[in-house]
Design a protein around this nucleic acid. Structure first.
Lengths: 360, 360
DNA sequence: ATGAAAGCGCTAACAA
DNA sequence: TTGTTAGCGCTTTCAT
């Protein structure tokens, strides 16, 4: 017991694996240090504070690292630095029957954005009845550095819970009506998106443009609706009797569209989702109306369904790539305990125009 | 320096946090041990080998754990046990313009299945030009226990690479033509799915059933095609001139369908994807043919697009939930170095019937 | 500019 | 059945 903390000499030479089939133990800091003839600390510095090393030492160490294919053990580093470089995301399934396949795109964007700063995304699930399930465990076991919360519509308690626990997080979605919310967030301006859709339809010569949206309880839905209303008002158009609130499914939209189309002056439809817009297309088909020429239809989200539907559905597209980049950017500030300029940042969606809204 | 490895007494009382705003340091094994008046090892046993403890000790320790909300530090555990309980999955974006939104469903199923055994899914991205990018880093830094590989069609080198590196992994997708492949895998029997579709169309009274599939280079595509062929042959139907190979997009399918429909005896379409099936629906619309009554159409994958398309597209649905469960099951065997009965297991898809293929 | 010591929180191996 | 010791691989602190 002369050198309690020093590594046994045999470290480098003797692989201790018991299973012959097991993967070989990767090299450690000690392996590299031995090989390069420096102390372990110097190798660590080569990685984390290269400016501290004499250039020639640095080069030597780096070449050994390269040759050995050394990569620092994450667990050890995490244990020491208390940082896992993992971002937790609770992953709910996309609702079947709706065209909401945004998660796919968002998740990829987030994975990409996170990887650019050496972070990874950790997916976890939770009891669908308990919106907080899963968070606590990861927090207490210090498994993740932070969370990205994606469903912060009114009534979701995640933000409050995480703030109370002192857990770093950023939200995709504004805090709709939480009075004390002071967390960082990014969101997409749904009202602006709906306004884009409305203005586009106006430009195409439509005057009486209907809105097909979700129930009043949906804050996101009401926000989008306000964009339609604003656009119509700015154009001096009356919206009375043109705004409809229904559940997000094709058939409800189809029926609502039929009703609205009884009035032949109604020729435009801005919708809160692609699902609803597709319902309008169905109604048009059943009435022998041609989308584009006779009726202008715009959906929301630019889902895959919008892209393959005939005759090609115009849709408002959310800038998910930018959202992800922005979320990761703020996350950094939050993790560094740095002040964030604006707590929230609103990103603007764009309009993808397809034949369903083109008169030509 | 009398007790080099013992913890300082003050451990429990003094929170060492520097930032007042920082989250509180969670309790550790030592905190629990002190509180319960036992050694740290006993607490560890209470967690990992409860049967070793005297029942009354166990209860006492558990109640302290409960009260303190203790959860073992993952990094420390991972460092010691060399197991992260993380499953790596390289996540590629869904192709825009196709209706392939399977990843969403699969990912959720996998997250769920993994969580049931205390695992989490770690998402990583990689240079799309290099199919191996990302794997190596995670491997060398021992960040994940294993990988789930999702794109093992012919020519993808991941399986070979991982095997060579001795990295544990399971594949979603059979090894199409790797001679030496001996890894564990699960796949969905695409031929069976296409056969289901074909038989269903035959039952609906169709005789001349066309196949719209992908280019010959796609093994998955050829596999599905063989199911159609088998079904037709079993029914004594000639397939000559009825099988078409095109790229996976709506317009190519639309054109191909038009061509096939020049022959009025052709009344059924089995397709390798929903995208292609939707192309057929478009062609029908353009010819004034009604899907279901006049023409039977079946797609593949039961995507969201299939569900919202008019008049409701029948489609072959992959049992992704089962795939995920099976993958996690084998992963356990692989990680435990246990023998796996069958290296591969084929799961059967089912047919979701909607109006596009119903005569009634 | 480099090295030695200490310790993050846990569990495997062994001792009592 | 419980406790003690050692050490996983890394970084922080302090010494040189």
């Amino acid at each position: 017991m002369t050198q309690p903390t020093s590594r046994p000499e045999s470290r480098t030479e003797a692989p201790r694996g018991r299973h012959l089939s097991a993967p070989p133990t990767p090299p450690t800091l000690a392996t590299v240090a031995d090989e390069a003839g420096v102390s372990r600390q110097t190798v660590s510095n080569a990685l984390n504070n290269p400016e501290l090393l004499r250039p020639e030492t640095l080069v030597r160490v780096q070449s050994v690292i390269e040759r050995l294919g050394y990569s620092p053990n994450r667990a050890a580093r995490q244990l020491r630095t208390r940082s896992s470089h993992l971002i937790g995301l609770r992953f709910e399934p996309a609702q079947e029957g709706t065209s909401n396949a945004l998660m796919d795109r968002f998740l990829h964007s987030l994975t990409e954005a996170a990887s650019r700063t050496g972070h990874h995304v950790l997916l976890f699930s939770g009891d669908s009845k308990d919106p907080l399930d899963g968070y606590d465990d990861l927090l207490r076991s210090t498994a993740v550095d932070a969370f990205v919360v994606t469903d912060t519509y009114a009534g979701t308690p995640q933000a409050g819970f995480l703030r109370e626990r002192g857990a770093p997080f950023v939200a995709f979605g504004r805090p709709w009506d939480e009075p004390g919310a002071d967390h960082a967030w990014t969101d997409v301006d749904g009202a602006h998106g709906a306004r884009l859709a409305t203005e586009h339809l106006l430009e195409q010569g439509h005057r009486r443009i209907a809105w097909l949206g979700w129930e009043k309880t949906s804050r996101i839905g009401e926000d989008r609706r306000s964009g339609w209303q604003g656009g119509m008002q700015a154009a001096g158009q009356d919206t009375r009797g043109l705004g409809v609130r229904i559940t997000d499914n094709v058939d409800a939209a189809r029926l609502a569209a039929h009703e609205l189309l009884e009035d032949p002056s109604v020729t435009g439809f801005a919708c809160a989702s692609d699902t609803l817009a597709i319902g309008v297309l169905h109604a048009c088909a059943e009435r022998g109306l041609r989308p584009g020429r006779d009726i202008g239809v715009v959906g929301f989200d630019d889902s895959l369904a919008a892209q393959v539907t005939w005759p090609g559905l115009s849709s408002v597209r959310q800038p998910l790539e930018e959202v992800a980049v922005e979320l990761v950017r703020i996350l950094h500030l939050v993790l560094a305990h740095k002040p964030i300029g604006d707590k929230g940042r609103m990103l603007r969606p764009s309009l993808v125009v397809r034949p369903s809204s083109l008169r030509s």
